[in-house]
């Protein structure tokens, strides 16, 4: 990042090492191998993949979150406490998280897990804007799980508030009980209904909670309450939630609060931190840095 003080040759070496180091890092990740990349490198460079160079920073945000995610997944589920931190200074209200989430979970019309609230504040010329992405808060004292008559929505030991689609009656009591309006109901509609027919991508299966479901007829999740679930199905495969990975401002962080050396634990030690509607005592797991 600084000025090019090194001579050309040294810089080329550095770049080469950097690229190879990057390759080595991703080799280390359990799920994705850079087979083609390594082979290309091997073919042209006649060298071997070097171990990670000390000077190349591995503390960059998403790779750090990725690593910490893998660490956390090794622990028993009751020792994890997933939290999300949203830096409102970095959020640019692009709505990519809203749409990415809708695409990842195949959300139909009328269901949105993570809208972004955009406010204009002040009087000209002293004005500003505030952007607040609002996923499910995954409260520690969730008002929604308290009121479900059959316990179809419940809080997992790792903190994620889940819904059992096969149990849920669709009584919508939990929708009324959420102070953040985070729950939606699946009315059974399609975006492309009567156009003249529903397009194939709407009948693709979705994998929420690790269950494969196709929205057809009267089957769940149609007729159920639905909400953000921190992409459990992605966590189960060592991937960060979609909103975290597609955020173009890099404003969304996710991790295990019980890891004192983790990124999210350090972020919420800031004086900028706040949670929404703290006075209600719900103790959300989503923190905002204002």
């Amino acid at each position: 990042m600084g000025s090019n003080k090194e001579p050309n040759q040294g810089r080329k070496e550095f770049i080469k090492k950097g690229l190879l180091a990057g390759g080595g890092l991703l080799v280390a990740s359990e799920l994705i191998k850079w087979k083609p990349m390594i082979e290309a490198v091997k073919a042209t460079q006649h060298t071997e993949v070097l171990p990670l160079v000390e000077t190349v920073s591995t503390e960059d945000v998403v790779i750090r979150m990725q690593k910490e995610l893998h660490e956390a997944l090794k622990k028993p589920v009751e020792e994890i406490h997933w939290i999300m931190v949203i830096d409102q200074k970095k959020c640019v209200a692009c709505d990519a998280c809203t749409v990415g989430c809708s695409a990842e979970n195949g959300l139909p019309p009328g269901v949105v897990y993570r809208p972004v609230i955009k406010e204009e504040i002040g009087t000209y010329p002293n004005v500003s804007r505030r952007f607040t992405p609002r996923p499910c808060m995954h409260c520690e004292n969730p008002p929604c799980t308290q009121v479900c008559p059959i316990g179809a929505t419940y809080k997992r030991p790792d903190g994620i508030v889940s819904i059992d689609y096969d149990k849920c009656l669709g009584c919508r009591y939990c929708l009324s009980a959420c102070p953040y309006g985070a729950r939606s109901f699946d009315w059974g509609e399609y975006h492309t209904e009567n156009t003249p027919e529903v397009m194939p991508y709407e009948l693709e299966p979705t994998f929420e909670y690790g269950d494969e479901k196709v929205r057809k007829g009267n089957k769940s999740p149609i007729g159920n309450a639905r909400k953000c679930h921190f992409c459990i199905h992605r966590l189960q495969n060592g991937m960060l939630p979609t909103c975290v990975t597609t955020c173009i401002g890099r404003a969304t962080y996710f991790g295990d609060l019980n890891n004192p050396n983790g990124l999210v634990a350090s972020l919420i030690g800031s004086p900028r931190v706040k949670r929404l509607k703290e006075k209600l005592g719900t103790k959300p797991s989503v923190y905002y840095l204002t």
């Binding site: 692009c94 990519a96 695409a103």
Partner: peptide, 18 residues
């Protein structure tokens, strides 16, 4: 190399391409 570790990003239009 540094930013790439952040993974890439995509705006809402790209995510709606389907």
């Amino acid at each position: 190399t540094e930013n790439q570790k952040d993974g890439a990003a995509m705006c809402p239009k790209g995510l709606s391409g389907i």
